[in-house]
Design a protein around this nucleic acid. Structure first.
Lengths: 327, 327
DNA sequence: CTGAAAGCGCTTACAG
DNA sequence: CTGAAAGCGCTTACAG
C-alpha cells in the first residue's frame, strides 16, 4: 500500500532537525531545547503530521490500550464495569476498547486472526470461560484478568455467585410458596456462565431448609420468553416464590403478575439478581453485586501485570448482598 | 522493551527456509509448495510462534479492523446496529471494536493520543456531531461513516428523526388531551443529538394541526428521572398525551401510570420512539427505526471507502414508521 | 540538547 | 515455488 502520507522524516527535514528530535517532541521528552521544540511543533502543524501508530507500537512495544471482551453488550452492567475499569486505567494513561463476543463469527475472528488479540497491552475478559475459549490463542506474556469467571490460568475478579444464590434461597425459602427458578440457559460456549452458580447456591440453600424447587425454567436472555415463562408459572401456581437469576428476567415477571392483578409480597414473592436501576425502580428484591468495584480491581491488577509484577493467578472474590425491597 | 519472543526469523531458521516463505505461509499465499508449507506450519506450532501485529500492520498498511464510536453503551440499540454492521464487515474479513465515548476522559483520550484513532482501517461514529467533535483529529484519508447524525464531512446513514417526530405528532394530536414531551437533555457535547430532531418534528406536526404542547421536560437518560417526570405530568393533568423521544423513557411513564391506576388509550396516550423489545412487551405505541439496516448500510459504505471509492459525502436517510399498539 | 544509525518484525516486489 | 533484500515509520541507546 502506497498511502504516501507525511512521515517523521518529512517533518525532520522541513524543520531542519534529526528524526530523533521530532520523536522526542511528539513523545514529550524533556530533553529538547524549548526553541527546537517550538520549531518542530510548528512544522508538525504545518504538515499536519500524524505519527503512524503501527510504527510507533512496533518500536516501542506498547499501545497503552487494553481490550475488554464482553459476551454481549447488555448495557448497564457493562457500562458500570467499564467505568470502574477506566477509573484505574486513566491514572496510567491507558484506555480500553470493547470487543463484544456475541456471535460465533466474532469468536472465530479472534481464533483466526488471533494476532488482533495481541494488538493491545492487556485483556479483560468478562464472564467467559477464558481457559477453554481463549487461552490457547492468547500469547503467554499477555496480561489478562478474568472478570465474573474464576480462571485457572489468569487472575480473576468475581462476585460469589454461589453465595448470592444462597442469599436468595434463604430469603425465598421463608415463605410457604411453590419455589420456581427462571434462569438463563447457556446455549453457546460464548454465553455467560454465572447463572448456573446462582442456581446452585439457591438449590443448596433451600435443600438445607428441607425445601424443593418445583420447576426450573431455562430460557434465553429475552424479555418475551421471560414474560411467557411467568405466564406458565402463574398458571400452574397462584401461590409461588420465584428466583430470577438476573434482573433482566424479573421485570417481565413482575409485569405479567401485574397484568393478572397479583400483589407482590402477598400473592407471590420474587427475588432477583444484579441490582440494576430496573430493580430499584420496580422495587424488586434482589442480590446486589459491586459491579464498579469489580471493574476497578480488575483494572488495578491488570496494570500491575503490565508493569511486570508476576505472581500466580489469584482470585479476588467479592460478596454480594441481599437488597430487600417490595417483592 | 525487550520482550524477546519468537519472531518470523526464528521460524525461518528452524524450518530451513527464508522469512518470505514463512510470511507466505501465515498469509495463506497459494504460492507455496505443500511440503514446504507443512514443514513451516509444523515449526510454527513447535515454536508457538505468533506474528507481531504491529509489524504486520506497519508493512501491510491495514488492520482489517474498524472502530465503532458509540456515545454510550445502552445495549439493545447498539447491539442491533453492530450486528447489522458485522454482517457486511464479515464478508470481507473485517471485524469491529467498540470505543464507547461516555465520558469526558474518554473523549480527551481520543484527542490527546489521536494516533489511536488511526489504529484501525475505518471509523463508524454513532449519534455524535463528528464534524465538530472528531474531524479535526481524524486524518484526511481515514474512511469514516457517520450514523444517526448527518455529517457535512463524511457519508452518513440515518433515520429521518424529524419525520419520526411528525408521525408521533400526527398520532397524538388526534386526541383531545394535554400534550407533553419528555426528551433527553443534551448536557454534554458527547451525548446523542437525535432527540432534538424528534422534538422538532413533533412540534411542527402539532402546530400544523393548531395544537400546542403544554410542557417539554428535558431530562437525563435515567429511568428514575423519567419516572419522577411522569409523576409530575400526571399530577398536573389527568388527561394527557405524552411523547417520549425514546422507549427508554416510555417504560417508567407507563409504570407510573399503572401505579396510580390510569388506563392507556383512555386516561392517557403515549407515543414513544425506537421500537425496542421493551415497547413490544409493554405494547407501547412507538416509532420504529430500521436499526440493523442502518448498520448494514453503514458497513457497506465504509468498506467501499476503504477500497478506495471516493465520492462526495452523501446521506442515506431511512424512513421511520409508526407502530400502533396499546398506548 | 541533538543527530546518525541500528533495530523493532513483518510484507512484497525482484530475481531466479 | 523460494530466498535475499529493501522498506514500512517509528524509538532509543550511542556518541558527541
Amino acid at each position: 500500500m502506497k498511502r504516501r502520507s507525511v512521515t517523521i522524516k518529512d517533518v525532520a527535514k522541513k524543520a531542519g532537525v534529526g528524526v530523533g528530535t521530532v520523536s522526542r517532541v511528539i513523545n514529550n521528552s524533556p530533553h529538547v531545547k524549548p526553541k527546537t521544540r517550538e520549531k518542530v511543533i510548528k512544522t508538525i502543524e504545518e504538515l499536519r503530521y500524524l505519527p503512524n501508530p503501527h510504527a510507533r507500537r512496533l518500536s516501542s512495544g506498547h499501545t497503552k490500550i487494553i481490550t475488554t471482551i464482553f459476551p454481549q453488550m447488555v448495557g448497564e452492567f457493562h457500562q458500570l464495569l467499564l467505568s470502574g475499569l477506566d477509573r484505574e486505567l486513566e491514572k496510567e494513561g491507558y484506555t480500553s476498547f470493547v470487543y463484544p463476543l456475541y456471535s460465533e463469527n466474532r469468536y472465530n475472528f479472534v481464533r483466526e486472526s488471533s494476532d488482533f488479540v495481541l494488538g493491545t497491552d492487556g485483556l479483560i475478559v468478562d464472564a467467559l470461560n477464558v481457559d477453554k475459549l481463549l487461552s490457547s490463542f492468547i500469547p503467554k506474556k499477555m496480561p489478562v484478568v478474568s472478570v465474573e469467571y474464576e480462571s485457572e490460568t489468569y487472575d480473576s475478579v468475581l462476585v460469589d455467585n454461589y453465595y448470592g444464590g444462597i442469599l436468595a434461597g434463604d430469603y425465598l425459602a421463608n415463605f410457604d410458596k411453590d419455589l420456581y427458578i427462571i434462569t438463563h440457559k447457556r446455549e453457546s460456549k460464548l454465553e455467560s456462565c454465572v447463572f448456573q452458580e446462582r442456581v446452585n447456591g439457591f438449590l443448596e440453600s433451600i435443600e438445607r431448609k428441607g425445601r424443593k424447587v418445583k420447576e426450573i425454567f431455562e430460557i434465553q436472555l429475552d424479555w418475551i420468553q421471560a414474560f411467557n415463562t411467568a405466564k406458565r408459572i402463574f398458571t400452574q401456581s397462584k401461590n409461588c416464590a420465584i428466583f430470577t437469576t438476573t434482573d433482566y428476567f424479573a421485570f417481565p415477571v413482575l409485569e405479567y403478575a401485574r397484568v393478572i392483578g397479583l400483589e407482590p409480597k402477598k400473592d407471590f414473592y420474587l427475588c432477583s439478581f444484579d441490582n440494576l436501576t430496573l430493580s430499584d425502580i420496580l422495587k424488586i428484591t434482589t442480590i446486589k453485586q459491586p459491579i464498579v468495584e469489580m471493574g476497578s480491581i480488575a483494572g488495578r491488577i491488570l496494570l500491575r501485570k503490565i508493569q511486570g509484577y508476576n505472581r500466580k493467578p489469584q482470585a479476588v472474590v467479592l460478596k454480594p448482598e441481599l437488597i430487600l425491597r417490595n417483592t
